[in-house]
């Protein structure tokens, strides 16, 4: 298994479990959607996987690297996890190029430009390389946020409610685009939503979260077939 999550437990305050004994395994390249009502702990689960919150118990192994176990804890900045935030969090004082290059400091300077260009091609936004975030539409901002998260070649991509800031017309189009981009890069991804349609259209598997527990799981065969 590419991703192994084992009996995670977490609470923001003592004696309150926001994530309760969550276990999950994923194959490489699989897309999992997490569905659940507001407050069920979806964002929290992503924050734990990314290393922004430290679980009280449990194990996380991705691509044979143990990120979290009883004796091990790798900080968020050392994990190779890409995340697209609900508000995209594009740095407003940097243009598109600088935003995407932000995560590429380990690459030699000469490779960075090429990688930025490659990412912009992937999301078809080459002509916006010099634009500042406030000069982009909501959908364009999201694509740049995606490009920025994918640029350092993370081992897993996490998306928190990627469509919640978009209006319905745009949403359908972007949903297809996102699916295409993720499939093209063969990126193992988890995305959070509370809209069944989103999950239905994109995911290989849907996981239902309620009060911090996984209560149901559905495999979406129609999506799996057209990729393999």
């Amino acid at each position: 298994m590419y991703v192994k999550i084992e009996s995670l437990q977490f609470g923001y305050v003592k004696d309150e479990q926001v994530i309760n004994d969550v276990s999950l395994s994923m194959k490489e390249g699989e897309i999992v959607a997490i569905l659940g009502s507001s407050g069920s702990g979806k964002s929290t689960l992503l924050r734990i996987l990314s290393g922004l919150e430290m679980p009280n118990k449990g194990e996380i192994v991705i691509n044979e690297e143990t990120l979290c176990a009883t004796q091990v804890y790798i900080e968020a900045e050392k994990r190779e996890v890409g995340m697209v935030f609900q508000d995209y969090a594009l740095f407003p004082h940097m243009n598109v190029e600088k935003n995407i290059a932000f995560g590429l400091s380990r690459l030699p300077k000469s490779c960075r430009k090429a990688r930025v260009k490659e990412m912009l091609e992937l999301v078809s936004m080459e002509e916006k390389i010099d634009a500042y975030p406030h000069e982009l539409s909501g959908g364009q901002q999201q694509r740049i946020a995606l490009a920025r998260a994918l640029a350092p070649k993370p081992s897993i991509l996490l998306l928190d409610e990627p469509f919640s800031n978009l209006d319905t017309d745009l949403k359908l189009k972007i949903r297809q685009e996102l699916k295409m981009i993720i499939k093209k890069t063969h990126m193992t991804s988890i995305f959070v939503t509370h809209d069944y349609e989103d999950a239905h259209d994109i995911a290989d598997r849907i996981i239902y979260l309620e009060n911090g527990r996984i209560v149901d799981e559905i495999v979406m065969e129609h999506n799996q077939q057209n990729t393999q």
Partner: peptide, 29 residues
């Protein structure tokens, strides 16, 4: 300042130092 700016920077591999100089400080400029 929204926490998501700092968190994105960390997830993109930036050290505390880099987060401060490249994100926190410029945003407060």
């Amino acid at each position: 300042q929204s926490a998501s700016f700092i968190e994105s920077a960390r997830l993109l591999g930036a050290s505390k130092w880099k987060v401060f100089w490249r994100v926190v400080l410029p945003l407060a400029r």
